[in-house]
Design a protein around this nucleic acid. Structure first.
Lengths: 231, 231
DNA sequence: CGCGAGCTTGACGTTGTTCAACTAGAGTGG
DNA sequence: CCACTCTAGTTGAACAACGTCAAGCTCGCG
């Protein structure tokens, strides 16, 4: 289970990066006093959709999935996040409720920051608000792309997108071992698990990728890009 | 065509509302000096996806559609906006490019505000940044809902959603005349025009709605809600 | 050695798209 | 005033895409 600790020094953790760049030492100290580190085991839920949003989380180590719990127990996997990601959510400044769930894909070390402290710093330092605004907008652009992917592409196009996403944005390698299950890949591409498996097999038979269990190797990147582009 | 004018006084337009609430008179004056009013005829494009984002727009009068131009000339209608809506887009503070297109559904009066001035004010007044952040997050929550609607519901559920959306959030009436074409309704629900027409006819035959041309009347709201909920 | 969870495969039915034909109404020009 | 045309809407039939169901498989683990 999760346990409380303060192993990390503030200066080495994500507070000095990303949206927190440019905070004064005093502002960093306020955050530092209102944070705590938590470890999760693979499979455990960090944030549950519908619960109160009291903290945001920084991923210090490990991988998580961010997903919306939809109809009939079906999930839609919005994104995968790993080291240095900061997970807030659109509930901030609206209803302070989590609008997605977050689950650990691997064992994960996180740093939880109190949203009240965050709000306090935001009122002291305009840069923080602007950084968060920018981060939200980037996510918004990615969501637009996802809308088109999910609603206008056939299954092969969506699987191609997912493979390129994992290779380029998550693992930074053409050959990788993913903690995502087949069901996760199906949730990421909005299709049934069986369909996802079938398309992966097609790609394998066409020598576009190689896969055994959870190890993926992309052989023909251009083919994937072409399949992704034409839908 | 669009024409430049300054008919409105600043105090009566949208600058005093929504995200601009709480600005000082001097800050309002800066905005007022860097804005101009533009009229569009029905059908004209206000923002084109891919062009530079130099201004945000306030809708003073009329209705517009905000849509993503996707694959094979297919559009995805994100939302409909009308009086007092402020249209920016996720390109702000990222790449300053429009990531969606906006077209006038009716004749429209707008007020365009320079993004540089907006940025200047944001650095002077933290409330503006927080208000925009909040507005973005609300849109983010709506996008999550739209993800589930579009990817996990059948056509009848999506059409039911669209009808409830138009009735509740756009026209505020159970009986309304919409400027949306059948194709627009199809784009809003991510299906073919023919399918949208068929579902609307089903609803009409089931006496759930009444429609002639573009006039819609919702007779059995509960039925629509039920259809929407169960997908 | 057996159990169970996740994975795989095939057969089948449903959902939704595409294509083509047809209709209605709104200009337009003789 | 009447063809003519153009666009949006409508309908039906054929077809493709995708999900569901059921069965069998694999592999790690006790």
């Amino acid at each position: 289970m999760a346990k409380y600790s303060r192993k990390m020094a503030c200066t080495t953790c994500c507070l000095t990066q990303s949206i927190f760049r440019g905070l004064s030492p005093e502002q960093l100290e306020i955050l530092n006093e209102n944070r705590h580190e938590v470890e999760f085991n693979a499979g455990e839920i960090m944030f549950k959709q519908g619960t109160a949003l009291t903290h945001i989380a920084c991923i210090l180590q490990g991988m998580v999935k961010i997903y919306i719990e939809g109809l009939n127990k079906k999930n839609l996997l919005i994104k995968v996040a790993r080291e240095n990601a900061i997970i807030g959510g659109p509930g901030m400044y609206v209803d302070f409720i989590h609008h997605f769930s977050v689950a650990a894909l691997t064992d994960v070390q996180t740093c939880f920051i109190d949203v009240n402290s965050l709000e306090k710093i935001m009122k002291m330092n305009q840069n923080l608000a602007l950084n968060i605004l920018k981060k939200n907008n980037i996510q918004g652009i990615q969501n637009f792309k996802k809308f088109i992917n999910l609603t206008q592409k056939h299954m092969s196009g969506r699987i191609a997108d997912a493979l390129l996403y994992l290779a380029d944005e998550i693992h930074n390698a053409t050959s990788f071992e993913t903690p995502l299950s087949r069901q996760d890949i199906a949730d990421l591409t909005s299709m049934s698990k069986e369909s996802a498996i079938r398309i992966l097999k097609e790609f394998k038979d066409a020598r576009i990728i190689e896969l055994s269990n959870n190890h993926f190797t992309i052989h023909d990147r251009e083919a994937l890009v072409k399949i992704s582009d034409k839908g």
